[in-house]
Design a protein around this nucleic acid. Structure first.
Length: 420
RNA sequence: GUGGGUAUAGUUCAGUCGGUUAGAACGCCAGAUUGUGGAUCUGGAGGUCGUCGGUUCAAGUCCGACUAUCCACCCCA
């Protein structure tokens, strides 16, 4: 958990601002759901085999009413629950939604992984057509382009339908155990074998995610999801890729891409960037056609994705992407003493009322300190009022770039401040 | 959950073998210029040496625990 100080907050504002503009253009509406949800909700959505649930990577507590609550580890579950409870899914055939907010996972922090982090996510409900998958992926691409990335490639894969998955998982489980057994026989049994055995029991597909170099050669002997995907799902995926090509979105089919959340069906995708250490995925998502029904809603196909804002910002910094500079104040209004402060205060407010950006110190300062501060504020003009000016009904108007300073009647000062 | 690193001024970091008053740079404040910024020079303020405990005549320095943080595994955004 970290404090987001103003310099960093600007990055969040920029990214979120770009996202909001983009979502608006595509007709996605914002949804805000509670940070706290019944623990049960995540146990059912995230999946029994996900580490988020299995190794208790959740902030869970019992509230005074003896109910078990959890601070959301991801956004989709809450959105789906809200849609079901509100009946919005019945009202119209489809919903296009986005959310922005903090998520919490009780994991060991490291580069690119905080216990509290921010996700921007979007969900498209009620469309089975492959155009839905394509739209979500296309939007991801454009969001990254908007915030300044140039070389983006979307990695995607097809996990098939639940029936396909089941057959594949069974076959894969056998294959993994065979590989481990043969490694043992040839005396090459190592730590990764144990991991593989565990994964075989819980979620076999995860072995493709491995980062252990020495076991990579064995991966090639394992079956691939794509060979087990049924015709319908295969056609669906072909349409997705065709549409991405139409939209000019660079993509790359990665047959080893799997995802940690259990609820995905058919299309899964992610975008990785360098400069993030071991946690290089800044965005990920996919189709989840069964989740809504599993949570008690009407059968509703859906596609969604989530961006890790912290990772996105880190990747931006690693790529040297600069934010547009924040505009400096037009004026710096300076009171040299207590007597002239009310007049200075009035002048500052006058300019602000006309829409000008004005820096004001809220305390009298010496000319020297005040101008030093004015200089730092990058304001173009300093307006200086002291006892002398006050008694003569004038103020100093100083151009901080040229250094030129003139004395103007108060009425002229007021007119200039209003005009900018 | 596992393994390793780090913690000293606002910030980035020095600090020798354990030894007197813990330093530098940048930043901040002030003066040089009695009411005028940026550049320069001079000065000043600013420290629970992460916390607690231990060893010792003596601890920023050695030991232990805790906390925070970083890196990796795992997993994910």
């Amino acid at each position: 958990m970290e404090d987001i100080l103003p310099a960093l907050a600007r990055h969040y504002q920029f990214v979120e601002g770009q996202a909001r503009e983009l979502f608006d253009r595509y007709g996605y509406g914002e949804i805000r759901t509670p940070v706290l949800e019944p623990t049960e909700l995540f146990a059912r959505t995230v999946g029994d085999s996900s580490d988020i649930v299995v190794s208790k990577q959740m902030y869970t507590f019992t509230d005074p009413g003896e109910r078990s609550n959890t601070m959301r580890p991801e956004g989709t579950a809450g959105v789906v629950r809200a849609l079901i409870e509100s009946g919005l899914l019945k009202e119209t055939s489809q919903q296009k939604l986005f959310y922005v907010g903090p998520m919490f996972r009780y994991e060991k922090p490291q580069k690119g992984r905080q216990r509290q982090f921010t996700q921007i996510g979007m969900e498209l409900f009620g469309v089975a057509h492959a155009a839905a998958d394509a739209e979500v992926i296309t939007m991801c691409y454009h969001l990254l382009r908007r915030v300044g990335f140039n070389d983006i490639v979307v990695k995607l894969n097809n996990l098939g339908d639940p029936g396909d998955r089941k057959g594949f998982n069974d076959r894969l489980r056998e294959a993994i155990l065979e590989v481990v057994a043969s490694a043992r026989e040839s005396g090459k049994y190592a730590e990764w074998c144990e991991q593989w055995q565990d994964l075989a029991a819980i979620n076999p597909m995860r072995v493709f995610d491995t980062k252990v170099e020495e076991c990579r050669p064995y991966l090639s002997s394992l079956p691939r999801v794509v060979d087990y995907v049924g015709e319908e799902a295969r056609n669906h995926f072909d349409v997705v890729t065709a549409l991405l090509a139409q939209a000019g979105v660079p993509f790359e089919v990665d047959r080893e891409l799997v995802r940690g959340l259990d609820y995905y069906t058919r299309t899964v995708f992610e975008i990785v960037q360098t400069g993030l250490g071991a946690q290089n995925a800044i965005l990920g998502g996919g189709r989840y056609d069964n989740l809504v029904e599993e949570l008690g809603g009407p059968p509703t196909p859906a596609v969604g994705m989530a961006i890790g804002v912290e990772r996105l910002i880190m990747a931006m910094q690693a790529q040297g992407i600069k934010l547009p500079p924040s505009p400096p104040p037009a004026f710096y209004v300076l009171a040299l003493d207590d007597e002239s402060l009310p007049t200075a205060y009035r002048l500052a407010e006058l300019a602000r009322s006309s829409g000008q950006r004005v820096a004001f110190d809220c305390q009298p300062k010496s000319a020297k300190a005040g101008l030093r501060s004015a200089n730092r504020s990058k304001a173009q003009i300093a307006v200086i009022v002291g006892a002398d000016e006050l008694s003569r009904g004038v103020a100093q108007w100083k151009n901080l770039e040229s250094g030129e300073q003139i004395e103007l009647l108060m009425a002229e000062i007021e007119r200039n401040l209003k005009e900018g």
